[in-house]
Design a protein around this nucleic acid. Structure first.
Lengths: 109, 109
DNA sequence: TGACGGTATGTCCGATTCAGCATAACTTCT
DNA sequence: AGAAGTTATGCTGAATCGGACATACCGTCA
C-alpha cells in the first residue's frame, strides 16, 4: 500500500478541507481518500440528525467511541470497511450512500 | 470487528452466490459483505471489458496478481479500500460505482 | 501433446488497523 | 465554578491485511 507515501502524509498533518492537492498520492488513492472524507461527513450528519452519540454507535458496531471520532474526523488509519458498517448501522441507506459517492468530485490533477 | 464470527465464516467456506442467509452476521456486516460481492463482480466485468489482465492491474496498483484474483473472487480478507482503488484504477467512474451500490439489494434477515 | 498466457490457491512475514483504555478538551447545564 | 455528557487524542497489544512467492489449474494455439 505504499507505506512510504502514507507515512509521509501521516506525519504531514493531514486534515485538508476539500481534499485536493495531494502531491504524492496516486490518482486512485486520492479518489479513495476523498470518498472517505465525503462519507465521514455524511456519517456525522446522519448520526447527529438521529441524535445518536458516538458511544452508542460504537456499541452497536462492537467498536469504540474513539474509533468513531476518528472515522468522523476523516483521519488516517480508518478503513472504508468500518466506515460503511458505521453508515449502515446509523441507518443510512445504500441509496443515500450511492448519492454521496456520486457527488464525489474528482480531485484529480 | 468480531473476530470470532469472521473466523467461523472463514473456515466455513464462504462462497455464496447471491449473498443472503448469513447466519451469524449482523445486519450491517451482511450489507457490507454483499456490497463487496457486487463490486467485485463489477470489477471483473470492467477489467475484462477493457482487456486488462489481473497482472497488469496489479502492477498499476502496486499490488499482486493473486490479490486481484482474490478481490474478484469476493474472498475474505480483502478490504473495501483495495476494492475501490482497483475499481478506480480500472477506470470505473464514481458514478458507475454509485450505480452498483444502489443496485445492492438488502439481503437482510 | 507441449508450451504459454492468464487465473486460482495457499503460505509467510512485515505493516497496518482495530478495540480498549486513559485522559484531555469542549459544552451545556445548575 | 463544578458536574455531567459528549467528543478528541494518544498509546498498546493483538488481530488482520497486503505484497511477494510458489504452484496448480485451466483454455488455447501450434
Amino acid at each position: 500500500m505504499n507505506t512510504a507515501k502514507k507515512k509521509r502524509l501521516r506525519s504531514a498533518g493531514w486534515k485538508v478541507g476539500t481534499a485536493d492537492a495531494f502531491l504524492g498520492l496516486s490518482e486512485d488513492e486520492a479518489r479513495v481518500v476523498e470518498m472517505k472524507l465525503v462519507l465521514s461527513e455524511s456519517l456525522r450528519r446522519h448520526r447527529v440528525k438521529k441524535r445518536i452519540t458516538q458511544l452508542e454507535l460504537a456499541r452497536k458496531l462492537g467498536s469504540s467511541q474513539s474509533r468513531i471520532a476518528k472515522l468522523e474526523a476523516g483521519a488516517f488509519g480508518v478503513t472504508l470497511d468500518l466506515l460503511f458498517r458505521a453508515l449502515f448501522a446509523t441507518g443510512v441507506s445504500a441509496d443515500e450512500i450511492a448519492r454521496q459517492i456520486r457527488h464525489t468530485r474528482r480531485s484529480a490533477a
